Computed example of a mutant assay.
Amino acid sequence: MSDNSDLKAAATYAAQDATKFADEDEESRAIQNFHLEVSPEAVLTLFADLEESRNGMKHSCAIRLKKRVEQLETERDQLKAFAVEMINASFDGGSFDGGDIQDIAVKHGLLRIEQREDECGEGCACREYGFPAECYRKTPILGTGPKEIATPSTDNENVSRHEI
Rank of each mutant, 00 (worst) to 15 (best):
E27M: 15
A14H: 01
C135Q: 10
F47A: 11
Y129E: 04
T45A: 09
L65S: 05
L65P: 00
T19Q: 14
C124A: 00
V69N: 05
A150R: 09
I31A: 09
Y13M: 11
A105I: 00
G99L: 08
E85C: 05
D97F: 10
P146N: 09
N88G: 08
S153R: 07
I149C: 02
V84F: 12
N4E: 10
N33G: 13
D97S: 04
L46H: 04
G130L: 04
H162I: 10
I63P: 00
D49G: 09
A83C: 13
C126R: 03
R112K: 12
G109S: 03
N55D: 12
S5V: 08
S5M: 00
I31P: 00
E163P: 06
G145F: 12
A62E: 13
S39N: 03
Q16K: 09
Y129I: 14
H162M: 15
M57P: 00
E70A: 13
V84S: 04
L44M: 12
R161C: 06
F21M: 02
K107N: 09
P40Q: 08
L72H: 07
S39H: 05
E122F: 06
I149Q: 07
C120K: 06
V106T: 06
A15M: 07
E134D: 12
V84I: 13
V159E: 06
G94Y: 01
A30R: 02
V159P: 01
L50W: 15
I101W: 04
A105G: 04
E75Q: 09
D92G: 15
E51A: 12
A9L: 07
H35E: 06
V38N: 03
N55H: 11
N88M: 12
Q102C: 14
L111F: 11
D100C: 08
T74I: 10
R127L: 09
D118Y: 05
F131P: 05
E75I: 11
G145L: 15
T12K: 08
H59E: 15
Y13T: 15
D17G: 06
Q78M: 15
L72W: 04
L65Q: 10
A14V: 02
A125F: 08
T74C: 03
D23K: 03
T139G: 01
D118F: 07
R137L: 14
E41L: 08
D23V: 07
R116W: 03
I141S: 00
T19I: 12
L79C: 05
I141E: 02
S95C: 07
I141M: 02
K147S: 13
K8E: 08
S95Y: 07
H35V: 09
E24Q: 11
G121K: 01
A15Q: 05
E52R: 14
A83H: 13
K80C: 08
A125L: 11
A125Q: 12
L142V: 01
S28W: 10
G94W: 01
H35K: 14
M57I: 15
N156E: 03
F91A: 02
E148N: 14
D103P: 04
T151S: 13
D17E: 11
L50V: 14
G145N: 15
I149H: 10
H59C: 05
R68Y: 07
E114W: 03
R29G: 00
L7F: 01
F131K: 02
G123A: 11
R112M: 07
R161T: 14
R112P: 02
G130M: 00
T74P: 00
I101M: 12
M1T: 06
S2I: 12
T12C: 02
G143H: 00
S53Q: 13
D17C: 07
L65A: 08
